[in-house]
Amino acid sequence: MPSLSQLNGSLHIHQFYIDKLEANRELLFSSDPELAQLLDNVAAILSEHAVALAEDIAEMEYEDG
Rank of each mutant, 00 (worst) to 15 (best):
Y62P: 00
S3D: 03
L38Y: 09
E26K: 11
D56G: 07
E61W: 00
A54R: 07
A23K: 15
L38M: 11
G65P: 03
E48T: 05
P2F: 04
L53H: 06
M1D: 12
E55A: 14
L27M: 13
N41V: 02
H49G: 02
V42N: 03
L46F: 09
L53N: 01
N8V: 08
H49K: 11
A58H: 09
M1Q: 15
Y62H: 13
E34H: 08
A23H: 08
Q37R: 10
L21P: 00
F29A: 15
D32I: 05
I57R: 00
G9T: 12
L46P: 01
A43H: 00
L11S: 08
L11T: 03
A43M: 01
P33T: 04
S5A: 13
S30A: 11
A50S: 11
M1T: 10
E26W: 04
P33L: 00
I13H: 09
E61F: 02
M60E: 03
K20C: 09
N8R: 14
L11Q: 10
D19A: 15
F16W: 09
N41K: 08
A50T: 03
L38P: 01
D56K: 03
Y62W: 13
E59F: 07
Q15C: 09
E48P: 00
D40M: 06
S31N: 10
E63N: 13
Y17N: 12
G9K: 08
F29M: 10
A23Q: 14
Y17H: 11
A43G: 02
L27S: 15
L11I: 05
A44K: 11
I18H: 02
E48A: 11
L28W: 01
F16I: 15
V42K: 08
A54P: 01
S5Q: 14
S3H: 00
S3I: 01
L46Q: 11
L7A: 06
L27K: 15
A44I: 14
E22W: 05
L4K: 00
P2Q: 14
D56V: 03
L35Y: 13
S30Y: 02
G65N: 12
E63Y: 10
L38K: 12
E26D: 15
S3F: 00
P33F: 07
Q15K: 08
H14R: 06
S3T: 10
N8D: 13
L38G: 02
S3K: 02
L27P: 06
E22D: 09
M1I: 11
S5W: 00
F29D: 09
F29R: 12
N41P: 00
A54D: 12
P33R: 05
Y17E: 08
A54V: 04
Q6G: 10
F29S: 09
A23G: 09
A58Q: 14
N8W: 03
L53E: 06
A44H: 11
A44D: 09
A36Y: 02
D32M: 05
Y62K: 13
A44L: 10
L28F: 04
L46E: 12
V42H: 10
D64W: 05
E55W: 08
N41L: 06
R25Q: 15
E48L: 15
A43W: 05
H49I: 04
Q37K: 14
A58R: 09
N8G: 12
A50P: 01
S30P: 01
A52V: 06
E34S: 12
A36N: 03
E63I: 08
A58Y: 05
